[in-house]
Amino acid sequence: MTLRRLARFASKFLWDESGATAIEYALIASGISIVIVAAVIGIGGSLKDRFDGLNGLLK
């Protein structure tokens, strides 16, 4: 590779923003998944108590 071709390749690589959108979507998806996990953990405790109460009534 000549020096000119290497400089052109480096310039194209540095100005290419096509991967930025994928990274942004990945960050959004990970943020949403964190919120979902937190909600499930928060609701899980109250559901367990409710099912334990129902289980006690059925026995």
Rank of each mutant, 00 (worst) to 15 (best):
M1S: 15
M1H: 12
M1I: 08
T2I: 00
T2F: 04
T2W: 01
L3G: 05
L3R: 04
R4A: 15
R5H: 13
R5V: 13
R5F: 11
R5E: 14
L6Q: 13
L6H: 06
L6K: 06
A7P: 03
A7C: 04
A7I: 06
A7M: 01
R8T: 11
R8I: 11
F9C: 00
F9D: 02
A10Y: 03
S11I: 08
S11P: 00
S11Q: 14
K12N: 00
K12V: 00
K12A: 01
K12W: 06
K12D: 03
F13Q: 04
L14S: 02
L14E: 00
W15G: 09
W15S: 10
D16M: 11
D16C: 02
D16P: 03
E17R: 05
E17G: 11
E17V: 15
E17A: 12
S18P: 02
S18V: 05
S18H: 07
S18C: 02
G19V: 00
A20H: 01
T21F: 11
T21C: 08
T21M: 13
T21H: 09
T21V: 08
A22T: 10
A22I: 10
A22S: 07
A22K: 12
I23E: 13
I23Y: 01
Y25L: 15
Y25Q: 14
Y25R: 11
Y25G: 10
Y25C: 08
L27A: 00
L27Y: 01
L27N: 01
I28H: 02
A29W: 02
A29M: 03
A29I: 01
S30T: 09
S30Q: 03
G31H: 02
G31Q: 00
I32H: 07
I34T: 11
V35K: 15
V35G: 12
V35A: 15
I36Q: 00
I36C: 00
V37G: 06
V37R: 12
A38W: 01
A38H: 09
A39L: 05
A39C: 09
A39W: 05
A39R: 01
A39V: 02
A39T: 05
V40Y: 02
V40S: 03
I41D: 10
I41T: 10
I41P: 12
I43Y: 11
I43G: 12
I43W: 12
G44A: 06
G44H: 01
G44V: 02
G45K: 12
G45R: 15
S46D: 13
S46Q: 03
L47Y: 06
L47G: 11
K48F: 10
D49N: 06
D49A: 03
R50K: 09
R50E: 15
R50T: 14
F51A: 14
D52P: 09
G53W: 06
G53E: 10
G53Y: 10
L54Y: 11
L54T: 09
N55H: 13
N55C: 03
N55G: 11
N55W: 14
N55S: 13
G56D: 09
G56F: 14
G56S: 15
L58H: 12
L58M: 15
K59R: 14
